[in-house]
Design a protein around this nucleic acid. Structure first.
Lengths: 223, 223
DNA sequence: CCGTAAAATGGACTTTTCGTTCAGTATTGG
DNA sequence: CCAATACTGAACGAAAAGTCCATTTTACGG
């Protein structure tokens, strides 16, 4: 728990560790994790490859450490008094991060995890759950204020909120931006079923069918 | 368009192609795509590796072909007269498929696509969009019957429906099964905002807060 | 019916990357 | 000083990707 400068022999080089993480982040900003080699990290960090393997089991773990270290909490957890507004701001903040060079790593890590269960578990523990705990607070506040249903599990809600844009981020269909974040949140909060409330709000006459071809990043539909 | 046995030289071996796809499917059922080698496919198919590389650019493409060929339309597109029921049945069907040996490949392909944009694009074209078009029909029917909001883009709806469970499938948090499918659909259709309708339906007294620890596959929350 | 060009295949080859090893050197506490 | 620990640099073997060339199969023109 305490800092222990009591080790017997030569101490671990903090410069080397910092250089490794920095070099890793640099490379991760330029190409996917999969196409980065341990040799490249070692060379750019000015460090022997053996030093890297002494402290990390593989490059995925180096990348995860670099990610966590380089991420100085870039995502907001707003508290405006309105749960829907909180979630909208939060999801906009998240989409902005996930489409940034550093944030794109999220998809890389999930990809890596598909063939490495241990890594995936670590990613959940050290990144995903921390984020989800923060977002859960927003849900709790909304429930306590009586704005939100109290019969839905908060984990379900988090997946409803983040799932759609994570899906888009990974599959690459559809845009991931502020506008889409707003649409997703408003749909989730109001539901997609037609009822009195939405029927009143709807600006589109009932005769007009959906499929309005609004999303620019979509191919031509067959229907 | 027509079968053309008119090629000049030696003909492509249909046995070899079939053997390659079959061997690939066999291996994909046993370990993740990432950990399957082209040599292993070639050996099991009784075929030279060069033959594989002659017809496919890499093993991901072989896997995609094997996937599409081996998938005899295992997912239903129900038409019960109720959009919510249709989507519930459909999502149950999808989760069953995605948790099956063959269906797990969905995540593998998305993972592969994170470091290979061309492959990801092809995956969208040849798999994702076909599935989405089928599901879109269900949405259209619901809109035409007046059950569903006509001011929401169908692509948004598809991401709302599939995104949450795709997210769970890839990140490995939370369960992916019939029960969760029901919960997701009912939440999406009704919305998560508390209103008269949900307040009536709620079996939980307003005084009791959420976070009921219902999901078994969740770690202990910090809150 | 035969020779030839075109195309496909098989086996060996090269290249890349990973992860390890090891001998030598550097640094630190006791 | 010495015992312990860390870092370097280079080399190594294994695994996997991808390529090359000799061989085989086929259609076509004569």
């Amino acid at each position: 728990m305490f800092p222990e400068p009591k080790a017997r022999g030569r101490h671990r080089s903090v410069e080397a560790e910092a250089a490794i993480l920095k070099a890793t982040l640099y490379l991760l900003g330029r190409r996917p994790l999969r196409r980065i080699t341990t040799d490249a990290i070692a060379e750019r960090a000015g460090v022997s490859k053996a030093t890297i393997y002494k402290w990390w089991p593989n490059k995925s773990m180096v990348a995860l450490d670099a990610y966590l270290a380089g991420m100085t909490e870039q995502v907001a957890t707003p508290d405006t008094g309105s749960a829907e507004l909180d979630f909208t701001l939060q999801l906009k903040s998240v989409t902005a991060f996930y489409t940034s060079p550093l944030g794109r790593l999220f998809g890389q890590f999930l990809a890596e995890g598909q063939s490495d269960p241990d890594f995936l578990a670590l990613f959940r523990e050290r990144f995903l759950y921390a984020r989800r705990d923060a977002a859960r607070i927003m849900w709790q506040r909304g429930v306590e204020r009586g704005e939100l249903r109290d019969d839905i599990d908060s984990d379900t809600v988090l997946d409803l909120v983040y799932g759609p844009l994570v899906f888009r981020l990974l599959a690459g269909h559809g845009a991931v931006n502020d506008h889409e974040a707003e649409i997703v949140i408003s749909a989730i909060f109001g539901g997609i079923r037609r009822n009195k409330e939405t029927a009143q709000k709807s600006a589109v006459p009932p005769g007009r069918l959906g499929n309005t071809e609004s999303s620019d990043q979509r191919r031509a539909s067959k229907y």
